[in-house]
Design a protein around this nucleic acid. Sequence first.
DNA 1: CATATTCCTATAGACTTTATAGGAACAAAG
DNA 2: CTTTGTTCCTATAAAGTCTATAGGAATATG
Lengths: 142, 142
Amino acid sequence: MKCKYALKALVVLAAAEDKMPSKAIAKKAKVPEKFLEAILTELKKNGAITSERGAFGGHRLAKPPAKIMVGHIIRAIDGMLAPVSCASTFYYKKCRDCTHEEVCVIRHAMLEVRNQLSDKLDGMSVQNLLDMSPKQKQKIFW
Amino acid sequence: MKCKYALKALVVLAAAEDKMPSKAIAKKAKVPEKFLEAILTELKKNGAITSERGAFGGHRLAKPPAKIMVGHIIRAIDGMLAPVSCASTFYYKKCRDCTHEEVCVIRHAMLEVRNQLSDKLDGMSVQNLLDMSPKQKQKIFW
DNA sequence: CATATTCCTATAGACTTTATAGGAACAAAG
DNA sequence: CTTTGTTCCTATAAAGTCTATAGGAATATG
Ligand code: FES
Ligand code: FES
């Protein structure tokens, strides 16, 4: 959910012409307001969005949507992509139940899976998401 | 963990010449005994293994290891492969926060991810896992 | 009957998920 | 300088999932 909400928020922001307050994003994305607030904070920490406080404040993308990668966002919100920690590049952690990591068949298999997954996810931008929407004036994304 | 343990158990069984009691599998796979017991029950329900009760009982693969697919096992143990339920073939469930599923950009993107993932996982058998192990007499898989 | 094993049910601690609540800090407008 | 609309921060909490452990009934073998 959290990840999905984050991506939805980014798509909404990418489609918006100006900055938006979290309340407005929540409405468009159909996401619980206060929950989204927390997610936006994480996205900000991650460098995907910027924000302005006070009246008429709001959030906007920190970079062009083509440069915000889905894989990057998922890692920031959900953590590792790999099915097992020993196969993760960014969140590596040794497996308790394996003594010879170099020959571990599970790890080898999951490395392949991770590669496939990260290739796909790191090659997919928020712009790409936007482009998947059928062209129409009243933009409905979901 | 559960999924990993399940795959490990299957690899152990695939490498074994005869049926094995859960205790022995647990030792080889370095997995908690009682936990593994529960997992083996699930694998049996799923049709991947068979078992014999009583003294000198044990577990064995129900089919040749080349016909036991990793994707199938993961679905049985972990549930859906897809990142979102609306993109799952076997565990489909509508998203509360989306009203127009047909045009949902998140869903479209996640369908692609799911396809990539299931292609990989459904094309990978327990035999394939076994083959990833470097050839040596004392078989150490992890 | 003794032993080895699967199978079944219940329990439990720790953690994660999915939020909600309340209010402090901040900025702009009147 | 007060009102209003925001972000930002902290705390709380219900429900669910994960990772096991415990105890014993049912079953098969010798
Ligand atoms: S080393 Fe991680 S699964 Fe074996
Ligand atoms: S329909 Fe499932 S994410 Fe939109």
